[in-house]
Amino acid sequence: MKKRTVKKPARKTAAAGRPVRAAKTAPNGHDTQHAVEQFLYRQAELLDEKRWQDYIDLFAEDGMYWMPPEPSHATWDGMPAIFAEDKNLMTVRMKRVLHPDAWSQRPLWGTNHVVGNVVVERESPNGDVVARSRFHMMELRRDDVRHFAGLYIHHLKKTKDGYRIKLQRVDMTNAQAAFDYVLQVWV
């Protein structure tokens, strides 16, 4: 009796194409789960190290960084968005932050990202991947600490130089809360 109830949902999940265990093997023989995790950890590290250009370079030429104000939004196109940035706009943001007269950038400011709960949701035969994960970011600005947390959904394109981001969707749990000050760069 018990065995049956355990097995049944497992079969259903596999049929729906959403593996519970993500230890899936990609066509090239590498462990997709491991590769995606390493990519996400590296991306978070670039933010914490303020390596903005390297961060932008992780995006495909037509890549988008998108943070909707609420999870029901299905597109950024024609919708209010906290972020909806292509590489050009990301470059504006980077150049602003690096400008010596970006007054709000002067104070002591740092972040610490932790990324986890990585699930490879879908992998195409060409190696492109959709993955979701959870993040928690602590930010220090002067003496003030803020916390931001939520869900990342990465649409990753497989290239010879590794993954590139076609779309990074960021559903921040506190997106609808009043912002105590603003967000200066990507979360």
Binding site: M67, G78, M79, P80, A81, I82, F83, A84, L89, V92, R93, R96, A102, W103, S104, F179, Y181, V182, L183, Q184
Partner: peptide, 23 residues
């Protein structure tokens, strides 16, 4: 959409403008 771009770039919580005002 043109006005929306301003809403998102200037008036959203990731504002490229008001960040320096608030400071």
């Amino acid at each position: 959409r043109r006005a929306l771009a301003y809403y998102n770039l200037v008036n959203s919580p990731s504002t490229l403008i008001n960040a320096d005002d608030l400071e």
